[in-house]
Design a protein around this nucleic acid. Sequence first.
DNA 1: AAAACTAGTTTGTATTACAAACCATTATAT
DNA 2: ATATAATGGTTTGTAATACAAACTAGTTTT
Lengths: 102, 102
Amino acid sequence: MSLKDFLAFDSLLSDRTRLAIMATLTSSEEPIDFNTLLEQLDLTKGNLSSHMRKLEDAKLIKVSKRFIDRKPKTTYVASTRGSLELKNYLTQIQNVIEKVDE
Amino acid sequence: MSLKDFLAFDSLLSDRTRLAIMATLTSSEEPIDFNTLLEQLDLTKGNLSSHMRKLEDAKLIKVSKRFIDRKPKTTYVASTRGSLELKNYLTQIQNVIEKVDE
DNA sequence: AAAACTAGTTTGTATTACAAACCATTATAT
DNA sequence: ATATAATGGTTTGTAATACAAACTAGTTTT
């Protein structure tokens, strides 16, 4: 795969924040909630919220909203598609790394 | 290094196009000229021009402008700092990849 | 019953990438 | 000789994007 192909393949994951979010989700066995992501990645709420919305719209994650102890609790998991796209993206980056190392 | 640190370290190279440009430059022994980059990465001239300007302002590349056969010819090489920053950035991505693979 | 906290969302703004139009010069065609 | 097109870029306008401040809806505390 050439660098040209790397550029041609556009993905939501080319944003670093979303890459980190997806890395967090796929690395976890359990669903992760909004506030945990907020802490772990040190984002603002608005920023996180809009990234999660984009990932949801692209069906890269699955969102569950329910009330726990009368309080809203939103949790996220990576979808199958999301995990695949992350793997795919990281493979491409890996190729770039190897190209540079040669 | 945590994902938080990964996000905190902001770099011009977090743009994919610039990452590809720097990968191209560091992989080459010789300087690379404007039109070669244009072809190899399939960009528009304006887009390439502005990326190169940013890389130059950040001192990640060195630019040489001269006339060859009466025509202007701009060539680029990665600066020491640029090569370092690329390596640095790729190392960070590598860490993310390993985190996901675990 | 007011104030403060929790858990997010909406909306406005500032950056950023990008491409169309432009510029200066050189080569080609009429 | 003089338009016309090609070369090698740069400037500038626009569209997309990330981001954070302000807001919403409900809950707990005082």
